[in-house]
Design a protein around this nucleic acid. Structure first.
Lengths: 253, 253
DNA sequence: GTCTTTGCTTGATCCGAGTCAAGGCAACTC
DNA sequence: GAGTTGCCTTGACTCGGATCAAGCAAAGAC
């Protein structure tokens, strides 16, 4: 055990995630790892994927994972907690681009400008997996499934961003927002009925292009109509069908 | 020349773009080809890229290049003319996702769903280059620059789509729209001052989330203020700086 | 304990842009 | 020529949601 320990200790010091055994187990619970496992990346590819991952965090609420203008070097998979991305304009006004739940990838919009075009900020306690993008791109050259996954994720984000663009009422937006969160939580094994809003009303409002007062009012109206129940940031969907009907023109295909 | 001609003739019959000599010249004027040339794809890679390209069109105004629900098989570079992409919701209302000028890529949002999520419709006489996506992805496995270009284009579209999402006044939107068109034309070697709007007022309105009447009124106000001159679909920018000031919060970085 | 601070809710008012309606102007057709 | 069609413009009215302004509750600070 003596000199082996020394050697692996040295390696680990430079690459703390180099231990495949632990890492394999570690990443089998990681969202992006699960994606790869689920979509048929072979075990060798998966191991290589793990070798280029770094576990980062925890970040406390309000801390940033990356900031506008930082040189782009990696994309991040949320491991736990919720992340928001935002831009701040010249007048200091915030524009929220998106919320990222466990299992979702942050930073794909930075590949092109080669600097991060937004801040990524933890809304609660957040852990992430960091994927060096040059390494990922290199791996994608050899493993078709990795390349395909990347293309697919990128393409999906284009579609998702487009959906938000249509003109629609506050009711439609909020119903769609709630249902979207619900289905994303469900896809990751959480409850689709009872959900926790990690973000403030004003974050939601900003994201949806509304005033926070409007968010309050619409949620209250939905609650009065029996569509859902809100208690602070805890939200329970009681009539998903009715919400779907309200949001039908905004729902992702 | 004799048997050479015969051989290349046979090949050409099955793959009409297989003749490298002609094709190289042909695609050196094609927008996507120019992109690759400009960014340093080597000649061998470029030749291979040309081999997987098919020239399609011309399409007349109103004809579609692909339609919602078609199985995704290729992305398209606009060669001449203007293309719009749109979705039609259950009530039959149109939602315009984007306009594509010569040199721009259409269909990137179809990679993920693996079917086209929208119609691509020619606004005037349109010619395109068709890139088989499986072939492109395969080429990307071997040629880093092709992979990089694809990642970059995809990432750029995410960023572009996000920008449109913020709440903003009709004036801001229209100023940003005009400037955006202007810079895109300029990037392709056209005039940045005098531009032709290939799309109707109602297409512009739809794209910007406004009513067509509002587009009329705002353009008129801009004209009265000396910012630009409109004559039907011909538009001349007279005071770009003032437009930039109006649009400053929406301008792409 | 009180005093702040922060986030959320509710009410009253106002304004930008949508909607409705009418009319203008080319480009075609017959 | 007159009529039709499609697109654009202009005016009058309406309304959804922003803004302004309180008020309230929970969580810290001291």
């Amino acid at each position: 055990m003596g000199h082996d320990e020394t050697r692996s200790g040295r390696v680990t010091a430079h690459n703390p995630l180099g231990d495949d055994g632990d890492e394999y187990k570690f990443c089998s619970t990681c969202a992006f790892g699960a994606v790869c496992v689920g979509r048929g990346v072979d075990k060798i590819g998966l191991t290589e994927l793990h070798c280029l991952v770094e576990h980062a965090g925890p970040y406390g609420a309000g801390e940033s994972i990356f900031r506008t203008g930082d040189r782009f070097g990696a994309i991040f998979a949320v491991r736990s907690g919720t992340v928001k991305t935002r831009q701040v304009d010249m007048e200091g006004r915030e524009l929220i681009l998106g919320f990222y739940l466990p299992g979702e990838l942050v930073g794909l919009n930075a590949i092109h400008p080669e600097i991060y075009p937004c801040d990524a900020i933890a809304l609660d306690t957040v852990e992430v997996c960091r994927f060096s993008f040059p390494a990922l791109a290199t791996l994608a050259m050899r493993i078709p499934q990795v390349q395909k996954e990347l293309f697919s994720r990128l393409s999906k984000d284009i579609g998702d961003a487009s959906v938000r663009n249509q003109e629609s009422s506050a009711d439609e937006r909020l119903a769609a927002f709630v249902l979207n969160l619900s289905s994303r939580y469900e896809a990751r094994g959480f409850s689709s009925q009872a959900l926790h809003l990690s973000m403030s009303r004003s974050d939601i409002a900003n994201y949806l292009g509304l005033a926070s007062e409007t968010v309050s009012r619409v949620l209250r109206r939905f609650q009065d109509g029996g569509l859902l129940a809100v208690d602070g940031r805890e939200l329970t969907i009681n009539n998903g069908a009715a919400l779907k009907d309200i949001a039908k023109n905004l729902l992702q295909r």
